[in-house]
Amino acid sequence: MFDASEVVTAGLSAARLRINIIASNIANAETTRTPEGGPYKRRDIVISAESAPTSFQSSLDEMTLAKPQVLGVIADQSEPKKAYQPGHPDADPDGYVAYPNINVVQTMTDMMAATRLYQANVTAAKSLMEMSREGRRISSTF
C-alpha cells in the first residue's frame, strides 16, 4: 500500500526524468555520431500508472491512488533528417549527413510542459503537507 505523498513523489520523479530526457534531446539535436552508430536518436520515456497492491483494508486506496512509474526510456526509431554536406566526416557516400530527427522548437514546448508538470506536483505536495498541518490544528490547545 502506498499513500498520496508517495504518489506525488513518484510524479515529481517522473517529471524530473522527463526534463532530463528533454535536456538530453536538446543538447544532442545536432549530434551525428553515437557509440552504437548513426546519429543520436530522440529519447522518450514510457510512464505507466501503477496501482497499489491489493491489501486487506485498502481496496478504496487501490481505486484512488495510482502511482506513475517510469517503465523505461525508448529511442525514437523515425528516419533521421538528411542534410547535404559532402565535406562532413559523417557524410554517407552520396554526401548526405544524418541528423537526429529532433524538432528543437517542439522539444522546448515539451520542456515547458514538463516544467509545469513538476510545478503542479510540487503544488500538490505542498497542499498535502498543509492539510496535515491544518489537521493538527483541530486540537485547539496546541
Binding site: 505523498s5 506525488v8 515529481l12 520523479s13 505536495a125 503537507m129 496535515s132 493538527r136
Partner: peptide, 19 residues
C-alpha cells in the same frame, strides 16, 4: 537521491514529530 524526495521526507518527519 532527489531534492523533492528529501523535502517531502523532511516535511513528513516534521509533521510526524509535531503530531
Amino acid at each position: 537521491y532527489t531534492n523533492h524526495e528529501a523535502m517531502i521526507a523532511l516535511e513528513k518527519a516534521d509533521i510526524a514529530f509535531q503530531l
